[in-house]
């Protein structure tokens, strides 16, 4: 004995595990961008997700060497991982719900559900990418090809799987299904309207009338196709749009969303802290179309034709 203990892992397996973990964690890091949604923008939030991704990637990475060593029960680890990721979704949902009362406007349950699901799904990113990276390295190793090629195969397979999954899981945003533009606010006495559509009559004081007329911003969202209005009129979707708009520009006072039944358009009106109209349009266009409100028009049409 040389004092280092028995050799329990081969260099090849060690490389396989390292590369697979790195690929899986990197896949998660690439989708963990602090973008216009600015979430998670807290350093601790980011750290939690990176560590979770590392754990997920590790589970995916060790699964192949475990099976290779006839340790088939190791596959049950995957089931354990799934359970863990579900807990991630639950924790994320609870955490966002706790923050509801402190935001300018609430996110709404539909948006929270969408965000929590996305966080769960992105842990699967890490798991699947590392698993496929490890599997491809093992296949190349079985063909007795050198270590360099094994690493290259792992990186390539991981990248391809990452691209495929991220493309598959990428959702649409409001700007994809509707035209978004600024609109003029009209204040007449205590009534506020936007391009002829009544919004509120809660501007009873002169202060309110002046503030809305001078500082208020209004956006009109017109669905490109008639069926897109089904998703856009959804209360959860409108709350999500208003939330993104008010979080980006702040909200001094007053915030309304209205739907115009005749034209199918949506109106968002609020008094922002920072009046940046370009940013406002961008953020509304980039608000994700919630998974829970999305409907497949093609399926609806074929069903209707069958009937």
């Amino acid at each position: 004995m040389d004092g280092r203990g028995p050799m329990i892992i081969s260099t090849e397996d060690l490389w396989l595990i390292i590369i697979a973990i790195a690929m899986g964690t990197m896949a998660r890091l690439l989708v963990l961008k602090v973008d216009y949604k600015q979430y998670p923008s807290y350093p601790n939030g980011v750290l939690i997700h990176v560590v979770l991704a590392f754990v997920a990637a590790s589970i995916g990475a060790v699964a192949i060497p475990a099976i290779k060593s006839n340790n088939y029960t190791a596959v049950t680890f995957l089931a354990l991982a799934v359970q863990n990721f579900r807990d991630v979704r639950k924790t994320e949902r609870e955490s966002l719900k706790d923050l509801e009362e402190t935001e300018y406007t609430p996110r709404g349950n539909a948006y929270i559900d969408g965000i929590a699901k996305t966080f769960e799904a992105r842990n699967y990113f890490a798991l699947v990418v590392s698993l496929s990276s490890a599997a491809s390295m093992e296949i190349v190793a079985a063909l007795h090809i050198g270590m360099m090629f094994q690493v290259m195969a792992g990186v390539l397979a991981g990248s391809i799987v990452y691209q495929a999954i991220s493309r598959f899981s990428k959702g649409k945003s409001v700007g994809d299904v509707a035209a978004v533009r600024l609109a003029e606010i009209k204040v007449e006495g205590c009534e506020v309207s936007v391009e002829g559509t009544f919004v509120t009559n809660l501007a009873g004081t002169q202060n309110a009338q002046k503030m809305i007329a001078k500082e208020g911003v209004a956006v009109i969202i017109e669905p490109n196709q008639k069926h897109s209005a089904i998703a856009l009129h959804n209360f959860g979707q409108r709350k999500a749009i208003l939330f993104e708009a008010t979080r980006t520009l702040g909200a001094k006072r007053y915030n309304f969303t209205r739907k115009d039944y005749e034209t199918g358009r949506i109106i968002i009106l609020f008094v922002p802290i920072v009046r940046d109209l370009e940013k406002l349009l961008d953020v509304v266009k980039n608000t994700p179309l919630l998974e829970s409100v999305k409907k497949s028009h093609a399926v609806l049409r074929s069903k209707a034709m069958e009937d």
Partner: peptide, 11 residues
């Protein structure tokens, strides 16, 4: 009153 209760006003 509106300021006190942080309410909205309509006429």
């Amino acid at each position: 009153i509106a300021k006190t209760v942080k309410g909205d006003v309509t006429q």
